[in-house]
Amino acid sequence: MNFLKTTEQESHYNDLEKMEVLELLNNINQEDKTVPNAVQKAIPQIEKLVEITTKQLKKGGRLFYIGAGTSGRLGIVDASECPPTFGVPHDLVIGLIAGGDTAIRKAVEFAEDSQEQGWKDLLEHNINENDVVIGIAASGTTPYVVSTLRKCNENSIVTGCITCNQDSPLALTASYPITVVVGPEFVTGSSRMKAGTAQKLVLNMISTATMIQLGKVKGNKMVDMQLSNKKLVERGEKMLVSELNIDITTAKNLLKTHGNVRNAIKMYSKNG
Rank of each mutant, 00 (worst) to 15 (best):
A251H: 06
A198S: 02
K120M: 10
K120L: 14
G69D: 05
A138R: 08
A209K: 07
Q226V: 15
N253D: 12
E31G: 05
Y144R: 08
T142L: 08
P44I: 04
S242L: 09
I28R: 06
S190C: 04
A42Y: 04
E20R: 04
T159E: 01
T257G: 10
G75I: 01
I134A: 08
V21H: 00
G118K: 11
N204Q: 10
E185A: 03
L123E: 02
N229A: 14
C164T: 12
K238R: 15
E109F: 00
L123V: 00
G60T: 11
V182Q: 09
V132M: 01
G196H: 00
P89F: 12
L149A: 07
I248F: 03
L244E: 04
P83N: 10
H12D: 06
G69V: 00
E23Q: 08
K270R: 09
G100S: 10
K120E: 10
A174H: 09
H258A: 03
A251V: 12
K266N: 09
R62S: 06
A209P: 00
N29F: 05
G60H: 02
V93Q: 06
K266D: 02
T163V: 11
N26V: 01
V217I: 15
R62T: 11
V50D: 04
V158H: 08
L4N: 15
A209W: 05
S71C: 14
Y268Q: 02
E129L: 14
S80H: 10
N155F: 13
N271I: 13
E20Q: 07
S190H: 06
S11I: 03
D113S: 09
S191Y: 07
H125W: 15
C164N: 15
N245W: 09
E243S: 07
E129G: 12
D15Q: 03
S168V: 11
M239C: 12
R262Y: 15
V261A: 03
N165A: 00
I248E: 11
K5D: 12
N130E: 01
Q30Y: 00
M222D: 12
L244F: 02
Q213V: 05
S191P: 05
L227K: 11
N204C: 11
I104K: 08
K151L: 07
G259L: 15
E124N: 15
D91K: 14
I178D: 05
S175F: 05
K221S: 13
Q45S: 06
V50N: 06
S71Y: 13
D32N: 04
S139P: 13
A103P: 04
G189I: 02
G215K: 12
R262G: 11
E243W: 12
V145T: 15
S147L: 01
E154M: 15
T148W: 10
L254D: 02
S80M: 14
N128C: 10
P169C: 04
R192Q: 03
Y144D: 07
E243H: 08
R105V: 13
E109K: 15
S242I: 00
N271Y: 14
K58P: 00
E124G: 08
A42M: 01
L92W: 13
K238D: 04
G67I: 01
I52C: 02
M1N: 13
K252N: 14
L49M: 04
M193E: 00
S191V: 08
V146S: 08
S11R: 02
L227D: 02
I206L: 14
R262A: 10
M239A: 11
G259P: 09
E154P: 03
N130M: 12
L123I: 10
T210V: 10
K120C: 12
